[in-house]
Simulated assay, not measured.
Amino acid sequence: MNDGAYLRAIRADGQATLDAAGLGLDAPVPTTPGWTVGDVVAHLGRVHRQKAHIVRELLVSEPPMVEPPDGNGLLEWFAEGVHDLTEILSVTDPTTPVHTWHEPDQTVGFWIRRMAHETLIHRVDAELGHGLHSPVGAELGADGVDEILDIFMGGYPEWAQVDRSPVVVGLESEGRSWRLRFLSWTGTSPNSGREFTDVAGIEFDTGTTKPDAVVRGPGDALDLFLWGRGSADGLIVDGHPSVLLYLRDVAADATG
Rank of each mutant, 00 (worst) to 15 (best):
G4E: 15
L7H: 01
L7Y: 01
L7V: 07
D13A: 10
G14H: 02
L18V: 10
D19V: 13
D19M: 07
A20W: 01
L23M: 15
L23Q: 15
G24Q: 11
L25E: 08
L25T: 10
A27T: 09
V29A: 01
T31G: 09
V37F: 00
V37I: 08
G38V: 06
G38I: 06
D39V: 03
V40K: 01
V41N: 00
V41G: 00
A42L: 07
H43W: 08
R46F: 04
R49T: 07
R56P: 02
V60F: 09
P64S: 12
M65R: 06
V66W: 06
V66Q: 13
V66T: 15
F78I: 05
V82R: 00
D84Y: 08
L85H: 02
E87K: 13
I88H: 02
L89A: 04
T95G: 14
V98T: 05
V98M: 04
H99L: 00
H99A: 02
T100G: 02
H102R: 08
H102I: 05
D105Q: 14
D105C: 10
T107C: 03
W111F: 04
I112C: 03
M115F: 03
A116Y: 00
H117R: 07
V124G: 02
A126R: 00
A126I: 10
E127D: 10
E127H: 11
G131L: 11
G131T: 11
G131D: 11
H133L: 14
A138N: 12
G141Y: 00
A142H: 05
A142Q: 09
A142C: 13
D146L: 02
E147Q: 11
E147H: 06
E147S: 04
I148C: 00
D150T: 15
I151K: 05
F152N: 13
G154F: 01
G155F: 03
E158G: 14
Q161S: 15
V162D: 01
D163K: 12
R164N: 11
P166K: 06
V167S: 13
G170N: 09
G170P: 03
L171A: 04
S173M: 09
S173T: 15
R176P: 02
W178D: 05
L180Y: 03
L180A: 02
R181I: 03
S184F: 00
T186P: 04
T186L: 05
T186N: 07
S189W: 10
S189M: 07
N191A: 15
S192W: 07
E195F: 12
F196K: 03
V199H: 01
A200Q: 13
G207E: 06
G207K: 04
G207M: 05
K210M: 12
P211C: 09
D212V: 04
V215G: 00
G217W: 00
G217A: 07
D220Q: 12
A221G: 02
D223K: 02
L224V: 05
W227M: 13
G228K: 11
R229K: 13
R229I: 07
D233F: 14
G234P: 09
L235Q: 08
L235Y: 06
I236M: 13
G239K: 04
H240Q: 14
H240D: 15
S242Y: 05
S242H: 13
L247G: 01
V250E: 01
V250K: 01
A251Y: 04
A252W: 12
A252R: 15
A254N: 09
T255E: 08
T255Y: 10
